[in-house]
Amino acid sequence: MGRESSLRPEYQILAYVTLAKERVISSNCLCLLAKSEDEAKILTADVAKAMKADVTKLTNGDYVIIRV
């Protein structure tokens, strides 16, 4: 994330990976519902690799795939 210190970083949420169905709400980014923690990890890694993006793990265990 070498662009962290640009004057105005433009963060873009590319995908949200979660295990809880109730957290999947309508949005303009891709929301993926995983069956297990392992599946969530794999999904996140696959999407992040494809999109050349970074991943943030939220404290509730969900993953947000972002691009700066």
């Binding site: 994330m1 962290e4 990890k41 996140t44 890694a45 992040a48 970074d54 991943v55 943030t56 793990k57 404290t59 993953y63 947000v64 972002i66």
Partner: peptide, 20 residues
């Protein structure tokens, strides 16, 4: 927990994957 610290100073939380 995927948060990066240097000498106890919070730096970033984008190390969300095990690889990172």
């Amino acid at each position: 927990d995927s948060n990066l610290y240097v000498n106890g100073i919070f730096i970033s939380n984008i190390l969300g994957t095990e690889n990172a």
